[in-house]
Amino acid sequence: MEHQRRALVRWLLGTGVGASIASFLYPAIRFMDPPDIPEAPVNEAPAGKIQDLKANSGKIVKFGSRPVLLVRVDESEWRAFSAVCTHLNCTVQFRDDTHQIWCACHNGLYDLHGKVISGPPPAPLEEYTVRLRGDDVVVARRT
């Protein structure tokens, strides 16, 4: 009887302390989880003037909160890709000497269609559409 009473007290004390700790920890852990901040969907973004980018060169443009690599392959051909390397999230760049897209972080190489040529990237770069409106260059998400 004595043993049972002690066991009951021990169980109540243990679960009480455990529940108290859980009630402190749960809100703290939830607090550390950052809330979702919805972004307005971006379907196209201005990418500067045609004359700002020479043939065989590239630049990073803002597409909402994401970087996009705009490449002017030659006088008339333009391409755009997500600039986020599919390997470990670094921002890629256009190499005018090799006509390839290169990630300096882990030496990933993509061709000018976004396909992986060599290195560790596991997937191609997402391609965007480039539209020319008068003097303006506009990058748009592919539908």
């Binding site: 990073i60 443009v61 690599l69 600039a83 921002t91 890629v92 990630c103 300096a104 972080c105």
Partner: peptide, 10 residues
């Protein structure tokens, strides 16, 4: 600059 490429030699 979040809108620049990773520099060479990083």
């Amino acid at each position: 600059d979040p809108f620049s490429s990773a520099p060479a030699g990083i």
